[in-house]
Every structure is written in C-alpha cells, then in structure tokens.
Design a binder for these strands. Sequence first.
DNA 1: ATAGGGTTAG
Length: 669
Amino acid sequence: MEISLVSGNGITPIPNSQSPLTCSCFPFLPFPFSATAVRPFKNSKFTVFATTTVELNETRNWQRNVPPKSSKIVSLRNKTRQSAILDVQESSDLDSALSRSGGKLKAQDLNVILRHFGKLNRWKELSQLFAWMQQNEKTNIASYSGYIKFVGKSLDPMKALDIYNSIKDELTRNNVSVCNSLLDCLVKNGKFERCLNMFHQMKQAGLKPDIVTYSTLLVGCAKVKDGYSKATELVRELKYHGLQMDSVIYGTLLSVCASNNQCQEAERYFMEMKSEGYSPNVFHYSSLINAYSVDGNYTKADELIQEMKSGGLVLNKVILTTLLKVYVRGGLFEKSRELINKLDKLGYAEDEMPYCILMDGLVKAGKVTEAKTLFDEMKNKNVKTDGYAYSIMISGFCRGGLLQDAKQLASSYEAKYDRYDIVILNTMLCAYCRAGEMDNVMKMLKKVDESAISPDWNTFHILIRYFCKEKLYILAYHTLDDMHKKGHQPEEELCSSLIHYLGKTGAHAEAFSVYNILKYSKRTMCSALHEKILHILVAGRLLKDAYIIIKDNAGSISQSATQKFAVSFMKSGNINLVNDVIKAIHSSGCKIDQKLFHMAISRYVEDSEKKDLLLQLLKWMPGQGYSVDSSTRNLILKKSHLYGCQIVAELLSKQQVVSKTKSRQTRTK
DNA sequence: ATAGGGTTAG
C-alpha cells in the first residue's frame, strides 16, 4: 500500500491533492479512486412520505370530480394544452420541447410538469424547467412553493434559499405556502438554526404564520439539542396568535419531549391534550412510552399499555417495539426476550428492529455473548437486515475488545451485502482500524468515495485516531484539516494529542495549524495547550508565531517557557520585532533580565541600520525601571559614533539614575 | 392551487 510510504517521522510530504487520481472524499489520501455511480443506501422516510402526499392529493382532486367545462372550444384548448404537457414531460430534449410546446402552456400546466419531474427525482430537468418558466414569466405562487419543496427533497437547501431570496414580488415572498415550503426544506435538511432565523426574518417582512408553519417548525425541535425550550416558545407564540392546538401538534410535541428527555413535560402535554377533549391515539401513546424508555420506567409504560387496551386501541408493531425499548433500558432482559417472542408470533418481528433493540441493550450491559446468540438466532430465522444488526454486533465486539470477532463479522457483512451507509461504514472502519487491517481500512474508504455517502464527524475521528496509532501523523493532520474544512469540530483531546505527536516528530507548522483549528472552532481550550504549542514553535524556530502566542495568552504561560522563548527570539527572531517582543514579555508580568537586553542590543549594534530601534529600546527602558549593565553599556559606547554621541550619553545617564534609585531601594529593604 | 404534521433500531 502506497500509504506506508508516509513515514512515521511525519516529514515525508503527501502527494499533491490536486492530482486527478486521488480520492475525492479524502483528497489527501495517496491512492487512486474512481468515482462511480451514486446510489443512496436507503430510501429516506421523507421520500416515501412526500410521494404519498402527492398521490393523496391527486386522489383527492380526482374524487372532487370537478364537472368538465362544456364548451367545445375549452375542451379543444384543454386538449392542446394536455398534449403540450405530455410533449414536454416525455421529451428527451427538454429545451427543444419547451421551445416547441412551451408557448401553449400556462403556469399551472408547467407546474404539472414540475411536479412530475419532482416526483421522479429528476432534479436536473426540474431546475431547467423552472429556469425556463422564470425567463418566460410563467410562474405563479404554486410554482415557487412546489419548486422549493422539490429542491429541498433533492437535498439542496442552499439552492432553495437562493431561490427564495431571489423572489422580488413581495406577495409571493410573504405567501404562507412559499414560506412553509422553504422552512420545511430547511428542517428536513437539518438546518434548523437557519430555519428559525428565516422564520423571524419572514415574520418581519410580513408573513402571517399559520398552524402548518408552527407544525413544520416543531418537527425541527425534535432533532436538536435544546429543542424542548424552542418548542415551548413556539407553542406560546402560536397560542398568542390565536391558533388552535390540534391532535397532531400534540403528537409532535410529545415526540419533541421524548427526544429531549422531558418525561414530565410529556406527561403534562398528554394530560393537557386529554383535558381539551382530544383522545390520545397510538402516536401519542408511542411517544409517551418512548419518553419512559429513557429511564427504563417500565411500570409507567405498562400502565399506559393497560390504558390503551381498556380504551380499545390496538397494540401495533410500533407500540410493542417501543415497549421493548423500555424493558431493555430498564434492564429487564428476560421480559424483553418474552416480548420478542410475542412480537414474533404476531408477525411483528419480520425485520431486525426488535432484535437490534435487545442486542444493543445486551451489548451495552456487557453481555456480548448473549447478544451474539440472539444475532445468530435472528439470522437463522432469515430476518431482513439493513446492516443495523451487524453494526450493533461489530461495534459491540470492538467495545469488548474482541477485535478478531469484529473483523470477522465485518468481512462476512461485506461478503453478503453490498449496501453501505455512514453508520455501517464507520463501524466497519472502526473494526478494521482497531484490528490494524490497513488494506481493509483503505477498502472501506474507497467505498465511501464511490458512494454518495459523505464522511461524518465519526468517520474523521476514527481515521485520525487510527493514523495516530500507526504513527502516520502527517496523514492524521491532513485528515483533521479536511475534517475542519468540511465543517466538523474535532474533539479537543484528539487535537491536543495530535499536536503533541506532530511537535515531537518535527512537524512544527502542522502542529501549529492543528492548534489554530482548535482555537477557531472552540471558544475555550485547555490553557496548558498554549504553552505546549509555544514550546513546539520555539523548537521549530517559528518565532513570529510564538510571539503571537505569548501576546495573546500571557496569563496561561509559565515564566520559564516565556524566558525560553525570549532567549530564542533574541538570538534569531526577526530583528524588527525584538522591541515588540521585549515589551510583550514585560507586560505579561515577566521581568526582563540583563542577559536578554545584552542579546538584543548585541544584535542592534551589529546592524547599523537598526539604530532607531536601539534608541527606542534605550528610551523605553528607564520608564519601566530597567537599565543596561556595564558590559552592554560598553558595547553601545563602542559604536556610539554611529548613533550620535550626545543622544547615547543622555539616554545612558537617564538609565543610571534609574539603576541608582533601584539599588538604593534594594538596600533600604 | 400552492405548504405541513406525530411512533421504533446502529
């Protein structure tokens, strides 16, 4: 493997990342990858749901059974438009079809085609069509809300934002469907912060939010930290605007509570909902049971199950699976096992989820063997798997230090399935890294690169740890840099150990770069790190950078480290900064000793062009209580003809006054 | 005539 050419001393340069043969996810990796077909691992829930919605609406329209307009002319025109729609929709050359038939179409006809492309995930044609509609001024509100929705579905929230921001017409921009469409797009793509900002901006511009708007925003709260308090705020706001809470909003709220560990608040909303006359359905119950799973509160979960039964509700697959989660979290493994059997009898254990829940619990309780037994049992039953079960077991083995088992299971997954997503990839990567299987690590990275999967925070961490373990510090550095550029914040501990190794192996500039990455991605960092990087910079003769460290972090650097830096700087630092460095050291509370002054002044007298700097220093010294000693004084006097005898004499005599005062003070002490 | 919504697994 070429990678082993990068030696452990951390100095061998990495092949040029511009090379067309490198990996696009990890541009610094020194092996050739070709990007092949892009195929998502799983259908997202969203895709399924959005399709269902569109189909549902169409069914509704059809059921509405609008009577046809009677006039022959109208029906003829409709026919013309209908065939024009089909022409554009089915054409293999969209542009020519549009120039041929586009003129016959109205905005609402073009919207039909827009939805058609959107439904089939034909994003390129979707944008092309919309651009044409804009150019020919054949858009209406539906075009915007529909197009933004589909751009969101195509996972391009930034483009959706651009489109929204480019809307000039105020009525369109403040239209509630257009706004809801954009907000939903941001939520679905994990840009909740942005979504809230947008929401405030929209309100200021004149949007009148409706219940859909709040519902959309509340869904986002379930996915973020601190989502609960934001949800509370939103609920207060919607009530203030006179909007009515409904059953689904309560459902969303309960799920927000469950995912934010707000068990008591979930109970409160559940009660409130009941008192407003809504009877809870399976969604409400499953969210509340899920909230109980956090603490494994099986007593309360069982009570809810009883309540459902007496209310005549059917215990469906999700309810029973959620109940299993409660039992597992509560450590009731026997009872969990019985519940799985029950699920199996009901035909609810056809996919791997219930097994996964129990296996995960067992593994986390240190019962890896029991988990493996269940895993084998599941496989013998030919239960469908998407890789979850494998990743639970593989990481379980890793956690238990059973690296050979982990590796074996990983390769058996590879042999049987050719489907990957980020979690299974990370798990396998981790297993191979822990087992030290370089070739397999590379194979996994190649998989990442060949698929549409983008490496996440975890991927980078696993890799960086591994490269450090293998003493490939420069490679670890490049990975960290890439991680940072892709917007992930690396952990401080990882950075600090990498800084340590890079420093030790002579990669001083890289160490400094890691320090800066940490500094700019975190508000606080361990203060000992400043001193650590200072030592590295001094060792690497990166004295100007070291000076900045001293200046910015005076409080957290020891006197001895400062002193060491100062000596180095006086010896070989940039002469034009010598005075600045002396001042910085002084103001950091460190006394400047005679040796330093002597070194600085020796450098000045060697270079007659630095006369002004010398005079400046001599002028500054007495004000701070410093004076030169006799040997330094002689050094200056030898060259005083260069500086003007008069000035030098004056400056030195001022210093003598200082030194006399000082020695007198010392004596009286 | 366009927007939206709740439950389980790594």
